[in-house]
């Protein structure tokens, strides 16, 4: 009798799911930690680290689109604001513009300003729906890139800033492949865990409810607009975290990095991977970056957009939920992330 009761307790579906999840995350974590030990510098940084921080920027879009139902094209712009701000407040090749603050002051200020920028964007965009949200965020993205290009006093115009580098901690050079990879992994992991946690918070649930039925949310007493704007703020912070790494990875930030094309690439990554689970943007970023690095070996760089466009079409037509949606259907399990995760 007692044994039977214990048995059911241990094997209850919730427990099995929990253990399955711990095992899955444990394996994934180990693989990500061990990956650089068996890869070359190119694979560690160019593919590995870049996937991690571009995936984080795409995650900021997945959070906004997948949970909030708002598709924004300004996510890379938020990342760009953070990148520009570490250049302006921190150290760059333009000491006449840069304020030269210590990293522990420059980084939080950069994140804060990028979050504020995203909040203001949200205040404008959250009043619109669907295609209009896409249009207004695209307009903001293009306007910011053009503004940076024409403003020399703060943004140093066309050239932007070079000489950007991560802080050196405990005598460790974070620009070296291995440390930079682990730095990117730490930021990506924190962003991922943050999103997964907040998704089940009262705010996260409310945001998904706003996505599903704003009218009912209003009727039961929630401020729909405030939730949407707050979702933009959080997406801005996520994108900004990715933006710092983007600046350090390139060692520079200029208007070309945040032009309309790259902004759209962020959307492509999120959709390729799938907006149904926070792992999707990372999968999408990996596929995108692999294509970007290897397609140019096969055809000339000008055709890259054709390759990515065709890959995008094939995946989206085969699976509207992207690669993660495809995986979920193949393994015949209910989606675990977000809305139906317990």
């Amino acid at each position: 009798m007692t044994i039977a009761i214990q048995d059911t307790a241990v094997r209850s579906p919730a427990n099995v799911a929990l253990h399955g999840r711990i095992a899955k995350y444990g394996l994934l974590g180990l693989a990500l930690l061990a990956y650089p030990l068996m890869a070359s510098d190119f694979w560690i940084v160019q593919i590995g680290a870049q996937t991690l921080f571009m995936g984080t920027i795409a995650l900021s879009l997945m959070w906004l689109g997948g949970y909030g139902g708002m598709v924004s094209l300004a996510q890379l712009t938020f990342a760009g604001v953070a990148a520009y701000m570490v250049a302006v407040f921190g150290v760059s090749n333009r000491p006449d513009i840069s304020l030269g603050w210590e990293w522990w002051a420059a980084i939080p200020v950069a994140l804060l300003i990028a979050t504020a920028f995203a909040t203001i964007t949200g205040m404008l965009a959250a009043r619109t729906e669907g295609i209009y949200t896409i249009m207004i965020t695209l307009a903001i993205a293009v306007a910011f890139s053009l503004f940076c290009r024409q403003n020399y006093a703060i943004f140093n115009g066309f050239a932007g800033f070079a000489g950007l580098k991560p802080p050196s901690l405990f005598g460790l050079d974070l620009r070296a492949p291995l440390p930079f990879y682990y730095l990117s992994l730490a930021f990506a992991a924190a962003s991922y865990v943050g999103v997964v946690y907040v998704t089940r918070s009262t705010f996260g649930l409310a945001l998904q409810a706003v996505r599903d039925n704003p009218r009912r949310m209003r009727a039961i007493g929630f401020n729909v607009y405030a939730h949407r704007v707050a979702a933009y703020a959080m997406s801005g912070l996520l994108a900004a975290v990715g933006g710092l790494l983007l600046a350090w990875f390139n060692g520079r930030i200029s208007p070309g990095t945040i032009a309309a094309g790259p902004c759209i690439n962020t959307l492509v990554m999120a959709v390729l991977g799938g907006m149904v689970h926070p792992i999707g943007p990372y999968v999408g970023a990996l596929v995108f970056i692999l294509l970007q690095n290897f397609a140019i070996d096969l055809i000339d760089p000008e055709r890259f957009n054709l390759v990515i466009g065709v890959a995008f079409l094939i995946i989206v037509l085969a699976s509207p939920d992207g690669l993660v949606g495809l995986w979920q259907r193949m393994t015949r399990r209910r989606p675990e992330g977000g809305s139906s995760q317990r």
């Binding site: 009262t202 649930l205 409310a206 998904q208 409810a209 996505r211 599903d212 039925n213 009218r215 009912r216 949310m217 009727a219 039961i220 007493g221 929630f222 977000g338 809305s339 139906s340 317990r342």
Partner: peptide, 20 residues
């Protein structure tokens, strides 16, 4: 019905409680 289709039953009810 005006429900939150992507969320579980319990979360629908939970939000209705929190809204008040």
């Amino acid at each position: 019905s005006q429900l939150f289709r992507g969320l579980p039953v319990l979360d629908n009810l939970y939000l209705a409680v929190r809204g008040v």
